[in-house]
């Protein structure tokens, strides 16, 4: 065996994605805004402060020290173990999502520095089949935690997911257990795991790895919960409070540690990491 095992990682270019149009309309305040200005503003509307979705790459850029990112995702993509077909065959859904996002699946794992502290970071991309967790995401999260263990780095996971990927059936459900058993190892090694919940962190992801952080920080405007508003209204017919499953609801009921505005999330991470990592 070679002493230095050569690695082949999927490289993700962090350059800006090209857009067809220069302007966009804010869904919240209706203002017409210059897209570049929105992007430079962390995808926050400069007029009303509304948060727009961040892609995984944009999220990474917004959180880490410039130029510090190396993609260490495993070179894997979804198979179709159940030969699943709903209104479309599953492989077709995967291909469409890959084309739309330029990603292999709904998560990127990388090494990066946050205020000089080296970490392993995993970031989900909601555009890829709702950020759903199937075999690939489960494996990547485990891989990320194992890399953290191997190098003695903290692990950060930024969730943006509707839950388990239905198209992989029970194997998706098993990813909840799979990420939990590896999370237990991370704890044995006394390495910190900071879980960042963004819009949305729900169902299978919220009910597993995302809720197992040593510290759980929600981005302002996040949606956090297990069963969606529709499910509850449909089955139970309960009246739900207006802040149901928001960041403030989760904070108020003790499900998370803190809430941070998007523009302060990087600072929030570096502040908390400093308690765990001596430089």
């Amino acid at each position: 065996m070679a002493i230095f095992k050569e690695k082949h990682y999927l490289r993700v270019k962090l350059d800006k994605e090209t857009d067809e149009s220069l302007w966009m309309q804010c869904k919240s305040c209706g203002e017409l805004v210059f897209k570049r200005r929105v992007r430079e503003n962390n995808n926050i509307c400069p007029y009303c402060g509304e948060y727009f979705f961040l892609t995984a790459k944009e999220r990474i850029e917004s959180l880490i020290d410039e130029g510090s990112f190396t993609d260490i995702s495993k070179p894997i993509m979804a198979a179709d173990p159940l030969l699943f077909q709903d209104t479309k065959p599953y492989p077709q859904r995967i291909e469409e999502a890959q084309q739309k996002t330029g990603l292999a699946d709904a998560i990127i794992i990388g090494n990066a520095a946050i205020s000089g502290i080296v970490v392993v970071v995993g970031v989900m991309d909601f555009r890829f089949i709702g950020g759903s967790m199937g075999s690939v995401m489960g494996e990547q999260i485990c891989h990320g935690m194992e890399e953290a263990i191997r190098n003695h780095y903290p692990f950060i996971l930024v969730s943006s997911s509707g839950g388990a990927r239905i198209q992989e059936g029970i194997l998706s459900l098993m990813q909840m257990a799979k990420t939990s058993v590896v999370r237990a190892r991370l704890a044995e090694q006394r390495l910190p795991f900071i879980s960042v919940m963004t819009y949305p962190t729900t169902a299978g992801v919220q009910a597993s790895i995302a809720s197992l952080g040593d510290v759980i920080i929600a981005e302002k405007g996040a949606m956090i919960g297990f069963a969606g508003r529709r499910v509850i209204k449909g089955t139970i017919a309960e009246e739900l409070p207006p802040n149901y499953q928001t960041d403030s609801f989760a904070l108020e009921h003790g499900s998370i540690d803190r809430v941070a505005n998007r523009e302060y999330l990087r600072e929030e991470l570096s502040n908390v990491l400093r308690f765990f990592v001596r430089q």
Partner: peptide, 21 residues
């Protein structure tokens, strides 16, 4: 798991996650 307001208030997702662990 029971889908209801009270269950969400008591963080049913977190309870499940911690049992897995």
């Amino acid at each position: 798991a029971y889908p209801g307001l009270e269950a969400e208030e008591f963080n049913i997702g977190g309870a499940i996650a911690n049992n897995l662990l």
